[in-house]
Write a protein that binds this DNA or RNA. Structure first.
Lengths: 203, 203
DNA sequence: AGCAGGTGTTTTACTTGTAAAAGATTATCT
DNA sequence: AGATAATCTTTTACAAGTAAAACACCTGCT
């Protein structure tokens, strides 16, 4: 039980229960040895295989899990951020400024942040009101603005990030370092593919 | 460059470019042999390592990539769905009804779909208006409703799902079957962990 | 100089999600 | 029975994103 085919999440409610397809054991090659995983996506896939045995549900095993993991992680990760009074999109803006180390224009922030210009405008407005970023107009080209962190904004990022990373470390602590590494490697490959052909083969 | 620490996305713009940290080669164990990946998350991590070398950026390698992959996949995946006039959340509702094979109450749909009850109410309203689902009240407990697919709704799901899966297969085609399998396995482990302790160790 | 067109940013109108309260009904306790 | 608490669903008020248009400004052509 996840969603139509294993994606998305947000709430935080316990798993429902589910499908009576338990007469067919989870495929051995999908279930690792020790931790008895049986994640929700596996259950969803089994349901689909029951009602539509003609379909190749293979992609769900990857894509469904990526989506569901992302949803759960975001929910989890927001905790340290929220304690600092930040949403993640807000933190993304501040973090981008922090890690690049120099001023950025709104369009650059939008690109770095993979969000729309309009969204960035709104976030900057709020962050400016809170005194976390400052803007100045370009002297040459008066269309463009330059945004930088204030000292307060920088301190906020620097204070939050270690908590954030510590939290993330804890979230991943159920997976040993070697597997984390392997996971990162495979995800990097997938991501490289996805980013490589951002204009994907149109379906 | 992705976002503050490698998450989220939505737009579809090309990668910016980035950090001049190229004097330090990408860690060999994170970059696979052939495909020259260098995904955006790797670049973001390197930026962080430049400005905050004291931090352990390890978790970003996994979590940042999961989030970014999810964002790109969702954007990509929406294509076949949209052709059918459905958003993904809508499809999630229909798909849940299809794969369980029986009526569900709104709360059950919310759980299966990992969304809030209110969101489900809204979606059901629209789907009902479009004639894709029907509702009937429970005879015993008049608080609860039962929702089922109409024939039209079922036909829609059955028509869209193969396209969706074919598209997903194509999206993943850059990764060979064995790695997809391995990726699915590791993601299943991670997901199992995340779902196991949904109330995570509070940070 | 003057204007057609491009670029950076913001605004507008709208969609969708959420949290919290409201509504309606059923379950429990005395 | 009657009151209180719990449960299912919807409503309300609001936050945040998006696409498209609007602004404001720059560039290059004539």
């Amino acid at each position: 039980m996840t969603t139509a085919d294993g994606r998305r999440a947000a709430d935080g409610d316990p798993k429902p229960d589910g499908d009576p397809a338990s007469d067919r054991a989870a495929p051995a090659d999908t279930a690792p040895a020790d931790t008895a995983p049986v994640d929700t996506v596996a259950a969803v896939v089994r349901q689909w295989e029951m009602v539509r045995p003609d379909l190749d549900t293979g992609p769900m095993e990857v894509i469904g899990r990526v989506n569901r993991c992302a949803a759960l992680l975001q929910q989890a990760e927001d905790a340290p951020l929220r304690r600092a009074g930040l949403t993640r999109p807000e933190f993304d803006v501040l973090g981008t400024l922090r890690r690049t180390g120099h001023e950025l224009t709104p369009s650059e922030i939008a690109r770095e942040t993979f969000s729309s210009g309009a969204a960035v405008t709104k976030r900057l407005k709020q962050l400016t009101e809170r005194g976390l970023v400052e803007r100045r107009g370009d002297t040459r080209d008066r269309r463009v603005a330059h945004v930088r962190l204030t000292d307060e904004g920088r301190d906020l990022v620097d204070g939050v990030l270690p908590d954030q990373l510590a939290y993330e470390t804890r979230v991943l602590s159920g997976i040993d370092r070697e597997r984390q590494h392997e996971l990162a490697r495979l995800l990097g490959e997938l991501l490289g593919q996805l980013e490589g052909r951002l204009r994907l083969p149109r379906a």
